[in-house]
């Protein structure tokens, strides 16, 4: 058994099936630690790895990764104190200006993030903000639609990690920029829902600098014996708190220097 693991391989497969079913059929389940109080964060990542294997075996392409729970606003909102990561596949992607169906989601929420596209492999441990900037091809604005499969969006870290960091859909677009040409620390962001401002912030809300979140993600990957491939799309975590959305809502995320991303939600 790997260090930090409290669950057996059988338990991990069983929990993966439970999460996979909840994701695919869009229903809420109790957090996993209700049944497995001894479940650790490492167990959560073991479930997530099994989930990724299933996604890929069904033909999904791994597009990249996301850092989650990286801002104080998000940590306070969710009651956790360590960031997490999750994987992103092509079937979670939606184009800019598209209509996103909510009927295959449980209780979606939208948040604004700065996304990175890499041009070199990044490998931890000890990956730094500068390593990330050196390996970045470009940055662009993104909106992530998170959707916890846990009842009432209530979870702890092992459970949310197993649920792939609440990943559901993501949209990127706006204006791509070279990171050296802008101040990635002070980018302002405004999220509007149906024309009204609902969330605001600046990019330093994410661990002081969004590239810091990518470095953290690379270091968490290293703990699992993995690296971040060149060409990966990586989201650095919500700058704003996540805002609940439903069919009929329209979201516009406006970013200093990076343009905007708009999406609407339908049944």
């Amino acid at each position: 058994m790997n260090p930090g693991l409290n669950l057996t391989r059988e338990d991990i497969v069983r929990l993966c099936e439970r999460v996979d079913g909840a994701q695919r059929r869009a229903y809420a389940i109790p957090k996993l630690t209700d049944e497995y109080p001894a479940m650790t964060i490492a167990d959560g990542y073991a479930v997530q790895a099994e989930l990724r294997r299933r996604y890929l075996s069904r033909g999904s392409r791994l597009v990249g990764w996301k850092a989650g729970l990286t801002s104080r606003a998000k940590m306070l909102q969710m009651g956790v104190h360590v960031p997490s990561i999750g994987f992103l596949t092509d079937d979670m992607y939606r184009p800019e200006n598209s209509a996103i169906s909510t009927s295959d989601l449980v209780h979606p929420r939208a948040e604004c993030e700065v996304a990175f596209v890499t041009k070199k492999t990044l490998k931890g441990p000890h990956c730094t903000r500068q390593d990330v900037l050196d390996a970045t091809d470009y940055v662009l604005p993104a909106v992530e639609i998170i959707d916890s499969r846990f009842s009432g969006f209530k979870f702890d870290l092992p459970s949310v990690v197993a649920d792939n960091g609440s990943s559901a859909r993501y949209v990127a677009g706006g204006r791509a920029r070279y990171p050296a040409e802008i101040d990635l620390r002070t980018l302002g962001v405004v999220m509007e829902k149906n024309g009204e401002i609902v969330a605001m912030g600046a990019s330093a809300a994410v661990l002081g600098h969004p590239a810091e979140a990518i470095a953290m993600l690379v270091n968490i990957l290293a703990e699992q014996g993995e690296e971040l491939a060149a060409g990966s799309f990586v989201m650095s975590g919500g700058i704003t708190e996540a805002i609940p959305v439903k069919a009929g809502d329209c979201i516009i995320a406006r970013y200093q220097e990076l343009g905007s991303v708009s999406i609407r939600f339908v049944e």
Binding site: R185, T186, L187, G188, V189, V190, G201, A202, S203, A204, R254, Y255, Q256, E257
Partner: peptide, 8 residues
């Protein structure tokens, strides 16, 4: 961009 200028 004074409306979108971030403040830290």
């Amino acid at each position: 961009d004074i409306a979108l200028a971030g403040m830290v």
